[in-house]
Design a protein around this nucleic acid. Structure first.
Length: 457
RNA sequence: GUGGGCGUAGCUCAGCUGGUAGAGCUCCAGAUUGUGGUUCUGGCUGUCGUGGGUUCGAGCCCCAUCGAUCACCCCA
């Protein structure tokens, strides 16, 4: 038997780690509830066709597809074999081989849910969702194959009030977690307008992806990439002023306004972003809000505002992302339901908080009392006392073996149990417990019925 | 999918131009048969990731493979 192992990119979470992860989830749940987003869950697996085509080519490649079961009993093995041969040749998704996949995000399954249940939902419908998603990416820093997304979305209203609310939720949650972060916002309509006025209207995605590299490769890098991608000299020339765009948000928007002059769609995006910035910038608790023209990220389905959050003081990709999607439910047959949402990447948030030491000191659910003993009779007494203390709300553990007291103390120390209560022959006779605080070193003998109260202090 | 370094004790690592593998920490026992964390003394620990090859001889060189990791792509 070989040593057991985990599939690539999958991780266990030992109790100490989980205590911290749960802290993040608890904060997010609290904030989500405060803004009126009740929790919802969907299954790990979706129909493959529900997921394909929503995330772009790259996304489709990263779907974990699930092989159909009991293939060996199939009656149409020739067809299956042919389908498999084809899959080996080029990337295809025959339902003969696979009809299900693990979800890639929470937004598309949510849209699917809304379409299936729109009859009983009150719109605008809000929900939060905290569940793992899976991507067959190659793991690296801040990237896992299984990770938790924590989403808030509202569907059924195109109101820009929700753009503002998303920023408020991001700000509230990140502030509460103590993360110094920048919320970047951009707008797909504006980007589409930009593509049009520069003569590349049909290649908005490619154009913006290239633009997105500005902070990484500089203006020259972007121009080189655009040239390599076959964009015309006229387009590149038209974009040039943006590559050296400087100044504050208002000034940048003014430059955009001139550039987008006469382009209705682009102007609409500009108008939207101004509306949102005007209202959201006030009263932020801990984050900075920034208009970032080069922000292109976001999946295929985004149509309006797009968001991305990065943490300061640490090298890590975005920790949150999101945006407005006007037609995601339309793909599933329910048009006219605009949605918007953001997603918190719990695992990256964990990594950031860990690196910056932002987790509060806390017991994290550790047992607070170990009952130690000096013989079988004393151990049995410990079992009784433990039940009384647990009933009183004290997390209590009884050392299982009759052994040297030293070993029992060491056990408590190793497990970070704060108190040890010793029952030996003397205590048994007197109905007391010798209670020692392992942090302060203080010890006192107390009647059993007073122990709980002493520990509560 | 592309590329770069890295796999030696439970952990972190050392190991010379190839010559039969070491340190610190952890762990265990004792000093201390009713007291942990500090101190002192003693002790245990290895398919050198795996499979081939070269060699009289491989932890070290070569090939392959697996794994973790980092970067690119893309993303949380």
């Amino acid at each position: 038997m070989n040593a057991p192992s985990l599939p690539k990119g999958m991780r266990d979470f030992p109790p100490e780690v989980l205590a911290r992860r749960n802290y993040i989830f608890d904060v997010l749940k609290k904030v989500f509830a405060r803004y009126g987003y009740p929790q919802l869950e969907t299954p790990a697996m979706e129909q493959l066709e529900t997921l394909t085509g929503k995330y772009g080519d790259e996304g489709d490649q990263l779907l974990f597809r699930v092989l159909n079961s009991r293939q060996h009993e199939a009656k149409n093995k020739d067809e299956i074999l042919a389908a498999f041969r084809q899959t080996l040749e080029k990337n295809t998704n025959s339902s003969l081989l696979t009809e299900r996949a693990l979800r890639y995000d929470l937004t598309v399954p949510f849209a699917r849910f809304v379409v299936m249940n729109h009859g009983h939902l009150v719109f605008p419908f809000k929900r939060s969702q905290i569940q793992p998603v899976w991507r067959a990416d190659r793991p690296q820093k801040g990237r896992y194959r299984e990770f938790y997304q924590c989403d808030v979305d509202v569907v059924g209203s195109p109101s820009l009030v929700y753009e503002v609310e998303m920023i408020q939720v991001l700000d509230a949650a990140l502030a509460e977690l103590g993360i110094d972060a920048v919320i970047k916002i951009n707008n797909r309509k504006m980007l589409a307008g930009l593509a049009e006025v520069t003569g590349a209207g049909d290649r908005m995605i490619e154009l913006t992806v290239a633009l997105d590299k500005l902070d990484k490769t500089g203006a020259d890098g972007v121009i080189a990439a655009l040239t390599a991608d076959g964009f015309s000299a006229a387009t590149i020339e038209a974009l040039r002023p943006l590559l050296s765009l400087e100044g504050n948000t208002a000034e940048k928007l003014n430059v955009m306004e001139k550039l987008l002059d006469g382009n209705a769609f682009g102007q609409k995006g500009l108008e939207e972003i101004r509306f949102v910035l005007d209202r959201a910038a006030k009263g932020l608790k801990g984050t900075t809000l920034e208009f970032d023209l080069t922000l292109a990220r976001g999946l295929n389905y985004y149509t309006g505002a797009i968001f991305e959050v990065t943490a300061r003081h640490v090298q890590m990709g975005s920790i949150c992302g999101g945006g407005r999607y006007d037609n995601l439910t339309g793909i599933f047959g329910l048009p006219g339901v605009s949605g918007i949402g953001v997603s918190f990447g719990a695992d990256r948030i964990y990594d950031v908080m860990n690196e910056l030491n932002l987790f509060p000191q806390q017991a994290g659910g550790a047992v607070s009392l170990l009952l130690a003993h000096l013989g079988e009779e004393e151990r049995d007494r410990c079992l009784e006392v433990a039940q009384e203390l647990r009933a009183a709300g004290i997390a209590t553990e009884v050392y299982p073996d009759v052994t040297k007291i030293k070993k029992q103390f060491k056990f408590a120390d190793d497990k970070n149990i704060r108190f040890v209560g010793v029952i030996g022959p003397d205590e048994l006779k007197q109905g007391t417990i010798s209670l020692k605080n392992l942090v302060s070193g203080e010890q006192q003998a107390l009647p059993v019925q007073e122990v709980a109260a002493a520990l509560m202090r």
